[in-house]
């Protein structure tokens, strides 16, 4: 067993005209909730997407549970099944019902029987508070409901890690809480989570450590206590002054 379930070592990533990540090194411990925040364009999504290779890195190395993600010969499909991802815009499959959204990958990737997959899906819908929406299509769901189905869909794979990329940024204020509550439950149960978000309340309640990412660089890492009450870096202070009242 590796104590650090995710290891990111000296990762560089460049898009045509922008340096998205500059020498980023981070480790996530098993069961930890890591909260990543920072200004728009700071590289938060890019970093998250490198962890399950939705983006490839230019330099450096990332391992997940001991498996090198950055190795081109790694079995990336097997690895991705262990890493759940939740997107800002939900990305539910619009041609499938909520239940089918949750059973599809269980059947095709985990090779579970239809009955078993449906049973697991119903249990998870219940857990995210949507037992009556099994047969609803995504377009019949509110934003908050869609995001909770998306979380259930990721959880159905029994992932070791959950990645969240601004899961509440596209939601109306009254729906943010219902999604954060589900995430909070998950954190309490000991799920390893990497959360990119602007919800400082969630960070205070659930994060073990916070990472401030700006211009592709890790500027500061600390516990919520440290970051909120005594940030060391000037850039962190300035950013927090902007987002906190």
């Amino acid at each position: 067993m590796y104590e650090n379930i995710i290891e990111i070592r000296h990762v560089h990533k460049r898009f045509k005209h922008v340096q998205a990540l500059v020498d980023v090194s981070l480790a996530v411990r098993r069961g930890e909730v890591l909260f990543i925040f920072g200004p728009s364009g700071g590289g938060k999504s890019t970093l998250l997407r490198c962890i399950n290779r939705l983006e490839t890195v230019d330099e450096g190395e990332i391992t997940v549970d001991g498996i090198p993600v950055t190795d081109p010969h790694a079995d990336i499909d097997a690895l991705r099944a262990e890493v759940g991802m939740v997107f800002q815009l939900f990305n539910l499959f619009p041609h499938l019902t909520a239940l089918q959204n949750i059973t599809l990958a269980q059947e095709k990737v985990r090779k579970r029987s239809r009955e078993e997959a449906a049973e697991i899906a119903l249990r998870l819908l219940n857990r995210v508070g949507l037992p009556e929406k099994a047969d609803a299509y995504p377009r019949q769901l509110s934003g908050g409901q869609k995001q909770r189905v998306a979380i259930a869909r990721a959880l159905a794979m029994n992932p070791k890690i959950m990645l969240f990329d601004e899961p509440t940024s596209a939601l109306d204020p009254e729906m943010i809480k219902e999604v954060l509550d589900v995430m909070l439950d998950l954190a309490r149960e000991g799920m390893t989570m990497v959360v990119v978000s602007h919800e400082m309340g969630f960070a205070r309640a659930a994060a073990d450590r916070m990472v401030f990412l700006d211009a592709g660089q890790v500027v500061e890492v600390g516990t919520p206590e440290e970051i909120f009450s005594s940030p060391k870096e000037k850039r962190t202070k300035e950013f927090l002054a902007h987002v906190l009242y």
Binding site: N52, L79, E82, G84, M85, N91, A105, M157
Partner: peptide
């Protein structure tokens, strides 16, 4: 996003 969601669930 549809392809990304499917791939991130481990589908080929």
């Amino acid at each position: 996003g549809q392809m990304e969601a499917a791939r991130s669930l481990g589908m080929s």
